[in-house]
Structures are given as structure tokens and as C-alpha cells.
Amino acid sequence: MNVLVSLVFQLLLEIWRRIIKENPRCSYQAIEKIADYYRSGAGKQQTLAENRQAFYKYKIRPRCLRNVENVDLSTTILGEKISMPIGIAPTAMQKMAHPLGECANARAAQELGTIFTLSTLSTSSIEEVAEAAPQAIKWYQLYIYKDRNITRDLVIRAEKAGFKALVLTVDAPVFGLRLEDLRNKFTLPSHLRLANFQGIKSGMNTERDHESGLNNYVTSLFDSSINWEDLKWLKSITKLPIVLKGILTAEDALLGVQAGVAAIQVSNHGARQIDGTVAAIDALSEIVKAVGDKIEVYMDGGVTDGVDILKAVALGARMVFIGRPALWGLTHSGQAGVEQILNILKKELITCMAIAGFSNIKEIDRNLVVHENYYSKL
């Protein structure tokens, strides 16, 4: 995926040029903080590396002579037909990457006929994104806050704006130890805002010794006491399907099924919560096996090319979401950059599917992929 690698290497340069042009007094240190926020993980960042490396442990068993002249990537997710099983995961504060931020990212998803997930911590509001990409399939990621009225109001706004699902992040009762952010005392740049929280007081734009503004924000609003009963409350205030994001065990996946959620998104929060957790792709099989065909299962984390996507689909992911790659494309050239990333992944997936002997994404099954240990046991 040489083009994507090239875009990643241009990330810092493009951020520097854009922010310094808009704010000549902006320092190199401020730019470095933004780049560190996007690219870093928790702790020693072992899980951040393993999210990518774990894909190498799965080997493809291609089939031959199967007529792959026409490859079809289209599928159905929560009843909505989409062009391919590649969607955009929620990532925060995208106007740090490009002036149009989340609106440009959503337009790219609209253009490619796939799903865009808007982060609660966005720098474009629910309403702004809905207006910018009215035809896009949009999901809204949220947390359950200490003040339940905040969560209720966000849900009502998302419903009114035409969002199709709620993605409840459940792996962040407290924020992980993101050492780069703590070292940098990361704060949202002063010219930006958390667009969905106008008028709500938080610590996002303040610094304290040994803390980051983001950590202050989390402490002020997030509720570390949430449990499965709060999921019942969320279901009682909305008719939108709920996707549980951040599940890594069969036990929690089954509790989600019992609670009546529509889907599970296998994820370790981009390796930003606990360093040392299982890679998302390694947790996928366990969860798919546990829930069977009761609900849909998706995954995110460490995906960098079409081969990764093919492996995830073979292991049971109905949908694969990307976070950082979309940010790199956004930083490089806005909507066009995100579209380029999605098109690269799409082309790679089509090519890999054809070589592996599959012409329809829905026909891919577990037999296509084995763990590397499979061959040592023969």
C-alpha cells in the first residue's frame, strides 16, 4: 500500500503548513502535540504495534479456477445496503487535520457509498455533518455521561439529524494512560471547539500540572459507574439500533446480545486504553463464535490494507472500520484524500478477493484464513 504509506509520511508536513498558515504564531510544539494525539496509543504502545502485526499471523488459503471476472463488494449493514465492507470509525477533533474536518470525511463516505461514524468529541456538530453529507449513512458515537440529560440531548439531536445508529463506546469508563498526551499536556487548539458541547463547561481547553486538557474533560463529564443497567436506559430513550464498540471478550459480547443490541464492534479503542490488551483481530474469532448469527459483528484496529480487510471478513467481521488511515487522507487533501484512501483499500480488497478465489464478499467464510500455527500441526 505504497500510496497510503506516502500519505502517512506527509502527515506532519501538511499539518505544519496548514496550521502555521492559519495561525503564524503557532509553534512547532503545538503541531507536535496534534500529531502525537492522532498517532499514539496507551502506555508503552505495545498494543498499538500488535494491532497491525497480529494480522501477519493469519494466512490465506486461496482457491483456484473459480471465475472471479466480476467481484462484488456490496453488502447490507443494519438493513442498509452499502458498496463495500469498509467504513470510517469515529475519531475525535478532525479539524485539527483539515479545516473541513468531519464534514469532509463524511462527504468522502457519502461519495463511496459507505458508513461514516461521527465522534462525540467532534469539531463539527451533528447538524453541520448532516447538512454537509445528507445522503451519507451516518452513525453517531457517544458515551453515557454523568449528566444523563447530556446523553439524552445528543441522542435526540442525532435522531433528528437522520443518523441511522448509535455507537456506544463501552471501553472508556476512565481514560487510558496516553503518555504522549500527558507529556504534551494536550489541549484542543484555541481556534477550535468541541462542536456538540457548546455551553457545557468542561476542562477541555485547560491545563494542569501532569494532566492533559482531554483528561480534564473526561474527568468532568464521563461516568465511571456505568453498567449494563445504563444500557437498558439508553435503549429506552431511542429507537435507533445500538452498536457496542469496545468489546474484546465473548462474555461481554453475550451480555450485549442479552441486552438487545444490534451489533458488536470488536475494538480496543485504537490501542488507546490499556496497553497489553489483545489485538482486535485476535479477539474477533472468539466473539464471532460466541454470538453466532444472533447479531452482526464488526471490527476496527490496525487495518492498513485490503489483505487485512479480507482476513477480518473471513474471520467473521461483517464490516471493517478504519480510523487513522482516514485521518491521514483527510490531513493530506481533505475529502479527496479520504476518498483516495477508501479507493486504495477498495481496489486492494477486490484484487485480493479475486486472487483468493472469491467473487462475492458474502461468500467469504472462515475456511479462507488459518492461524500460522495451522501449518506446524500438519
Rank of each mutant, 00 (worst) to 15 (best):
N196Q: 07
A280V: 04
I264D: 12
F222L: 07
V218I: 13
T219L: 06
S225N: 06
Q273C: 05
K201L: 15
N216T: 02
G292L: 09
E229G: 03
D252N: 14
T219Q: 01
E207G: 05
V243S: 04
I200R: 07
S225L: 07
A253Q: 13
I274S: 08
Q265M: 14
M299S: 11
A259I: 11
P241E: 11
G276M: 09
I295M: 06
I237V: 08
K239D: 12
S212D: 02
G276P: 03
T206A: 11
I281R: 04
V257T: 10
N216A: 02
S212A: 08
N196L: 05
L240A: 09
L221V: 03
N268I: 13
A279Y: 02
M204F: 14
L284I: 03
A263F: 08
D209I: 11
G203D: 05
N215C: 03
S267Q: 10
G213R: 02
I237D: 03
N216G: 12
L284R: 04
A259L: 14
A250N: 00
K289M: 08
D209T: 08
D293Y: 14
G270A: 13
S224H: 06
L194M: 12
E251L: 15
L234T: 01
K201M: 14
P241R: 06
K239T: 13
T219V: 09
K294C: 04
I200S: 11
G246C: 08
A280R: 05
A279D: 06
L240K: 11
K235C: 01
I200V: 15
W233L: 04
A283G: 03
L214A: 06
V288Q: 01
I242M: 13
A195Y: 05
Q258A: 10
G276D: 03
K201C: 13
I295A: 01
I281N: 07
Q273R: 12
A259S: 15
V243C: 04
D275C: 03
L234Q: 04
L255Q: 15
I247V: 15
Y217P: 00
G246V: 10
D282N: 10
V266I: 09
A280T: 14
N216R: 13
V261S: 10
R272A: 13
L284P: 01
G199T: 02
I274E: 10
